[in-house]
Amino acid sequence: MEIKLEGIVIIVGNYGSGKSEVSINLAAKKKHEGADVRIADLDLVNPYFRTREARGALTKLGIDVVLPPQRYLQADLPILDPAVAGMIRSPGQLSLIDAGGDDVGATVLASLAESFKDRSYSMLQVVNPLRPFTDSIDGCLKIRREIETASKMTINGLIANPNLIEETTPEDIINGYNFVEKLSWASGLPLKLLAISSGLLPKVNSKQFSCPVLPIKRQLVPPWKKAEKF
């Protein structure tokens, strides 16, 4: 099934839901399919394991990565590059915005309200039901409300990202998918994507899912592991 996302796509969710891995892999996939792709790392809350750590791999693929200036990359400061506002005004084929975790991370989006005015966008909530606080429908809905209040924007889709990293089983994927389907029903939000680690893909029948599958090649790894090659 083809992934039909274009224009401005904002990726939100709770801490550690996998926003950055999803954003990076979505950028790589759409680029591979021939789209013109830009990605902005707006994570002003997390100190480590951010999209910026994959900038080398992304740039090599020809993806435009919008980041704070190099000398502030490791700063514990909320820096919002003016290029992000420009990106929203003329998003091209696909402009991905990887926001920070929770309502705190989404607050930065409110400061871009002027740029978002009268523009259509997809704002997708990443859900990993194997994480604390999003293991129940109520938990996911609470985070949705908090993010919407903080960002002054509206979430209009879901991304299922059920995983325990290397320890994920095919059952975790099926159970996670079923959980997010229920959430989709409860929230009225369409399920746009199901993220599955590319290593697990052969063990899962993708035809059973109602939405396209995004294969994940893990990029944000600890120093004793190597990022998977695109």
């Binding site: 550690g16 995983n163 990293i165």
Partner: peptide, 14 residues
């Protein structure tokens, strides 16, 4: 069952 946690969260829960 296992859950996926950040070290800091896991320290709090522990």
């Amino acid at each position: 069952a296992k859950v996926l946690m950040k070290g800091n969260e896991a320290i709090g829960e522990a």
